[in-house]
Amino acid sequence: MATTMDRTGAEPVHPRPTRRAPWPVEFYRSGVGKKWVMAITGLLLMGFVFFHSIGNLKVYLGAEDFNHYGEFLREILVPILPRTIFLWLMRLGLIAAFAFHIHAAWSLTRMNQRANADGYQQSRDWQAATAASRSMRWTGVVVALFVVFHLFDLTWGTANPDYVRGDGYRNLVASFSRTPVAIFYLLANAALVIHLFHGAWSLFQSLGLNNPRWNAWRKHFAIAFAALIGVMNLSFPLAVMTGLVSADDNDACTKRGDVIERCTEYEEAHP
């Protein structure tokens, strides 16, 4: 650019590559593009969280309903697709969404760090930024760590000594019967609620969805959504810890002490 000054002005902190890339890459290179990707993947993940929680409400209907629902997920689109294929497609989509969400977050954070000078000496008097908006990367990390644990705990069972493949209900109860796990679950979901509180509003801005007619509802939506997820998810460990939901409700399985001895439903399904 032709602005001439003998003195040094500000140097670009993110110099652009001189070669233009094909458009999806070019788009994702930009911060605005990454934010768009974060919003879209965030929406997908919100959808997952929402339906995951709704499905899990079946825990209150008892083991049969709950496990039946689990089986349903594996059966979607059968016989068009073989069993669990659709579930796996959804899982792959989720994995991709997680990967992009995390990568975009990480590289935007790096971008912001490069743009920031040394901080202010006096602490800032925040006017609009909330604890939620300012802690997104930390709540995000907590949620991500939780998801990993959650998979080990309730999907693969490696982190759950009482794990019985197929008996989601029993596994859930067994998992939350361990107080540290329940507390971790509560904390992680609190983090998720905080993350959603900002993210579910922020995504509208990032996607450019803005109209004075319904702008106020974007915040209401975020609050309602975060609250709904919070109520549902936090209820599960609390229900187990208070005994509202317990393994004894599952007639199909017998238990000795803390150990599940026999589980007919699973055995019938997998002779």
Binding site: G31, V32, R114, Q127, A128, S133
Partner: peptide
């Protein structure tokens, strides 16, 4: 303009501090 902006500045995380300031 966005490309020029991103050479020098960070990205938006929708805090809304700018609007207040």
């Amino acid at each position: 303009m966005v490309d020029a902006m991103e050479e020098f500045f960070g990205s938006c995380t929708n805090h809304g501090e700018c609007q207040e300031a």
